[in-house]
């Protein structure tokens, strides 16, 4: 059975890897981007119930293309979460939607509700942003270790990561 105009001969979700490769090949770029791929996937279980855990939020949004946060990992205090974050310079569908509602990509208020409801123990002292990099090496060697260090400083048990 199919619905909503689904073509059962194609996968239902958009393949961004296929589309970007075909797009650039059609324009004569013969060296397709090599997306990160790993056979092994690390896995950490929660060490305590979520209702006792410290949770942080990690985003690829930033504080403006001219701000340092566009090019390096940054942190924002969870006590005074921003009312907006910048999403310019990032891939997202400007024809279909907008990013004027922070919680649609940085759900700080939804998380605060879950804390008040007792579902989450606490929000971490800081939330974090990471720059979107074509260079996987920069993310792996520079930004990810920095975010880890800050999470460890704050005693983080679990992280929600939300890309644009």
């Amino acid at each position: 059975m199919s619905g909503r105009g689904v073509d059962p001969t194609h996968r239902t979700f958009v393949s961004y890897i296929d589309k970007s490769r075909e797009y650039y090949l059609a324009r004569g770029y013969g060296n397709p981007y090599r997306w990160a791929y790993f056979d092994e996937v690390p896995f950490a279980s929660l060490q305590r119930p979520l209702s006792q855990s410290v949770v942080t939020l990690i985003t690829t949004a930033h504080e403006g293309v001219d701000a340092p946060s566009f090019r390096s990992a940054y942190s924002i205090p969870s006590e005074s979460a921003p009312v907006s974050l910048h999403t310019d310079g990032l891939f997202w569908d400007r024809l279909a939607t907008h990013t004027e509602d922070l919680d649609s990509f940085f759900p700080v208020h939804r998380l605060e509700e879950f804390v008040r409801a007792g579902r989450i123990g606490h929000l971490a002292r800081r939330f974090h942003g990471v720059p979107t990099e074509y260079s996987q090496r920069k993310t792996i060697e520079r930004d990810a270790p920095e975010v880890l260090r800050r999470c460890q400083e704050d005693g983080v048990d679990a992280a929600l990561l939300v890309p644009l």
């Binding site: 997306w35 990160a36 790993f38 996937v41 690390p42 896995f43 950490a44 279980s45 929660l46 060490q47 990690i58 690829t60 990471v130 720059p131 979107t132 990099e133 996987q136 993310t139 792996i140 930004d143 990810a144 270790p145 975010v147 880890l148 999470c151 460890q152 983080v156 048990d157 679990a158 992280a159 929600l160 990561l161 939300v162 890309p163």
Partner: peptide, 18 residues
């Protein structure tokens, strides 16, 4: 891809991610 790489790093060091 960026957040996937960061999540993998956190997981490898004991922090649960989604």
């Amino acid at each position: 891809q960026t957040v996937s790489l960061v999540a993998r790093h956190l997981e490898a060091h004991g922090i649960a991610t989604v």
